[in-house]
Amino acid sequence: MTLGKTLWKLILIKMAILFFVLKLVFFPNLLKTKFDTDMERGDYVVEQLLHQAPSERSSN
């Protein structure tokens, strides 16, 4: 096999794993999945900022 073909194969396999396995199965964009609008996302993040101060934070 020529180098060009080997490299194309490597790129295509990598892209397929990246976009069809990793992105779809393991790496959803959490805020986009959970909320419909930017206002909701913003509210959620600010709530996280407010509730993660030491006295209220729970360990993971």
């Binding site: 180098l3 490597l10 892209m15 990793l22 393991f26 964009n29 993040v45």
Partner: peptide, 30 residues
């Protein structure tokens, strides 16, 4: 030729970091 091997192997590995931003670091990412 060696540059091409390195370029092809490295292509889009940075995208994985962006996937992680959205999932593992969503507060930061936002």
């Amino acid at each position: 030729r060696l540059f091409a091997v390195n370029f092809a192997a490295g292509l889009a590995t940075g995208l994985i970091l962006e996937f992680q931003f959205g999932t593992n670091w969503s507060n930061y990412s936002w």
